Simulated scan of single mutants.
Amino acid sequence: MTASALTRRRLGQLTLALGATTLAGRAFAQERLSIAAVNYPLAYFAERIAGDLADVRFLVPDDVDPSFWRPGIADITAIQSADLVLLNGAGFADWTARTTLPRARSVVTSAAFEDAFIATETITHAHGDGGAHSHTGTANYLWLDFAQAQMQAEAIAAALTRRAPDAEADIARNLDALIADLGALDTDARAIGAAAQGVRMIAAHPRYQYFARAYGVDIDAMEWDPREPVNDAQLAALEERVAASGARLFIWEAEPDAASRSRVESLGLTSAVLPPLANRPSDGDFISAMTQALAQVHQATLSLTGG
C-alpha cells in the first residue's frame, strides 16, 4: 500500500471515529468554512489541509504565549461561532476549560494519543505582565514530537472531511503534503538525537518534554522568561545546574539579547535557539522556521561531538 493510500485509509478511519452523526456539509462553491485554533501549529496545519475550503482564525496576539492567553468576550464569541474549533488537549489553553465551546464542532486533536501524555510537576511562576500561572499536570507542547504532530494533522483532516465530504480528495491530497513535511522534520530531529548521545542540554523553559522523549535527547530545564535578560540569580542557578549535570548545550526558546547569550556562554555552554512555535514565527511558517531551528541545534550538537 502506498503512503498516499495509507494516509487516505487512516483518514477514513478517523472520520468514522469522530462519530456517526453527520453534520451538515457545506459545498465549497457556496461558502467557506471557518476554523478556530488555540495555537499556531494547529492553525498552520488547518491552513495547509483546508486550502481554499476554509478561513482559519488564530486570534492570539503575536507577543502573547497561547498557553496562557486570556481571550476577551469578542474573541470567545468569534471562536464559538466557528464551524470547527481545534483544541490541542493536554491542558493547553486553560481558558477552554472555563468557556462553553460547541461540543459537536470541537476537535481535540490529540485524542488518539492521550495515553502518551507526559505528567509534569506543578510549578507556579510569572512571566512579564501575564500574571502568575502554573505548569500543572501534563506537558502540552505535543507537536514537538513530529509523529504526534502528524496525528494531530490527521485529526484535523478527518474533521474537515466530515464537514465537507465533497472535498475529501482535496483534503487528503493536502494532508499527504503536510505529512511529508512533518515527516522530514521528524527525520531531522532523529538526526539530532543520534548526534547528541552523551550531550546533556539545558533549556531556558520547560517546553521540550515530547521532543526529548521522541528523539532520545537529554534536556533539563530552567524557568526563565524569554523576554527578560538573564539576571545574576538566574546565572548562579544555571551555573549550579551545569556543575551538577555536565550540560554542554543551552536551548533558548527565542533569540536572546546579546548580553544574555554572552553570560550563558561564559559558563562554557554552546547556545542554540529552538522556538516551540506555539505562536507565529517572526519569519516564515511552521515548517520553514522549525527546519531552520533544527538545523541550528544539529550543527551546535555536532560542534560539541566533533561530528
Rank of each mutant, 00 (worst) to 15 (best):
M1F: 12
T2M: 08
A3K: 03
L6I: 08
R10Q: 12
G12L: 08
A17T: 00
G19V: 09
A20L: 14
T22M: 13
L23V: 11
L23G: 14
L23A: 14
L23E: 14
G25I: 00
R26T: 15
F28K: 12
L33I: 01
A37T: 06
P41T: 07
A43D: 12
Y44F: 15
E47S: 15
V64D: 09
P66A: 11
S67K: 13
F68H: 11
W69A: 10
W69Q: 08
R70D: 13
A74D: 14
D75I: 05
I76G: 03
I79T: 07
I79A: 05
V85S: 05
G89L: 10
A97S: 11
R98A: 13
T100L: 12
R103G: 15
A104I: 12
E114D: 08
I118P: 09
A119E: 14
A119T: 12
T120G: 05
T120D: 10
I123Y: 08
T124W: 01
A126Y: 04
G131F: 08
H133T: 03
S134N: 06
H135G: 07
G137H: 14
T161W: 03
R162I: 02
D166H: 11
D170G: 09
A177K: 12
L178P: 01
D181T: 01
D181E: 14
L182Y: 07
L182F: 03
A189S: 12
A191T: 10
A196L: 08
G198L: 01
V199H: 04
R200T: 15
M201P: 08
A203F: 06
A204S: 13
P206H: 06
Y210S: 04
F211I: 02
A214W: 01
G216M: 00
V217T: 06
D218H: 05
I219C: 04
D220G: 13
D225F: 04
P229W: 06
V230R: 09
V230P: 09
A233V: 15
L235A: 10
R241V: 02
A243V: 07
G246H: 03
R248E: 13
F250Y: 14
I251N: 04
P256S: 07
A259W: 04
L267G: 01
L267K: 02
G268T: 08
G268F: 10
V273I: 06
P275R: 09
P275L: 06
R280A: 15
G284L: 00
T291V: 00
T291E: 06
A293Y: 03
T301D: 03
L304E: 08
T305W: 09
G307A: 14
